[in-house]
């Protein structure tokens, strides 16, 4: 039969694997490049400390922050705060992202629902996240539910808009294909709409969990005695700048790790999607 065809295409597949290796290597170089600025800042920080222009209380040495981190981790205090914050993130995210997904799905499937809800949701999105806080405290008080709602609002928007975009953007040619194969309702949703919308939905998910993590610190501004945000506010009140900076480092690190993990999952799930491999950042 047509051996030359297979040879040709075997070649194409090999080329793709090779290209992937090349991009992997470049990514390593990029990563090293990304380390230059933080390392330089660290040296500058230590240099300023060495000049002894300010008291150690105001300009905390980097090693003191590391020491504080190790100490807080050792007492278990840090882990407790992180776990409580993560739990709040998870609850708020689940509420916000699932309602966002559901609404985005309905808006994507029905033009009527989109026309009746879309403008209102877009208008609501213009309200800055922290402007909700007084309202939330008024309605929900200061307890856990208030924090969950605050986080959920942040998690809601990226999910609703990205899901809508993915679901409403199913190419017409695939819709036609589904008609030819006589796929209706649930099967159409399951076999065509959701897979086609998946890249967009996963982007929404990643943005949504990222925002949840950002807003948990804000949510811990009020009415709580636990969580990584609380740890930092109490550190500020007691003028423990090392604790505040340790908190910043932890928040940044966890956010970075969550984003990276979700990106790995995304690439794994969307292995068919060539545009993902090209790197949308």
């Amino acid at each position: 039969m047509d051996l030359d065809h297979k040879g040709l295409n075997g070649q194409i597949i090999n080329d793709q694997i090779m290209n992937k290796n090349i991009t992997d290597r470049f990514q390593w170089k990029d990563r090293l490049l990304g380390l230059i600025l933080p390392v330089a800042l660290l040296f500058a920080w230590q240099g300023l400390v060495n000049l002894k222009l300010y008291s150690d209380l105001i300009l905390v040495p980097p090693l003191k922050v590391v020491g504080t981190l190790v100490y807080l981790a050792g007492t278990g205090e840090l882990t407790t705060h992180i776990l409580i914050s993560l739990q709040r993130v998870l609850t708020g995210f689940l509420i916000g992202a699932s309602s966002g997904f559901l609404l985005g799905l309905l808006m994507g499937l029905s033009a009527t629902i989109n026309r009746s809800l879309g403008p209102f949701i877009k208008a609501l999105k213009q309200v800055p996240e922290f402007a909700w806080m007084p309202m939330i405290i008024l309605v929900f008080g200061m307890d856990e539910l208030a924090k969950d709602v605050f986080i959920a609002i942040g998690a809601f928007y990226p999910m609703v808009f990205n899901t809508y975009q993915g679901v409403s953007g199913v190419p017409h040619k695939y819709q036609e294909l589904a008609r030819v194969f006589d796929f209706k309702n649930i099967r159409f949703l399951q076999k065509v709409v959701l897979p086609s919308a998946l890249p967009s939905i996963l982007t929404g998910l990643r943005l949504s969990i990222g925002l949840s993590w950002m807003f948990v610190v804000g949510a811990e501004l009020f009415g709580t005695e636990s969580g990584i945000g609380y740890m930092m506010y109490s550190g500020r009140e007691m003028f423990q700048i090392d604790v505040v900076i340790a908190g910043l480092v932890v928040i940044g690190a966890i956010g970075f790790i969550m984003n990276a993990l979700l990106k790995v999952v995304e690439n794994r799930v969307l292995v068919w999607n060539v545009s993902v491999e090209g790197g949308q950042g």
Binding site: K173, V180, F181, D182, V192, P195, S196, L198
Partner: peptide
């Protein structure tokens, strides 16, 4: 009346689903 599985179609664009 409408499409049916007794008729198959090949379009000019292959129209394969990229995720399968």
């Amino acid at each position: 009346v409408g499409p049916g599985l007794n008729r198959g179609i090949v379009f000019q664009d292959h129209r394969l689903l990229p995720w399968l």
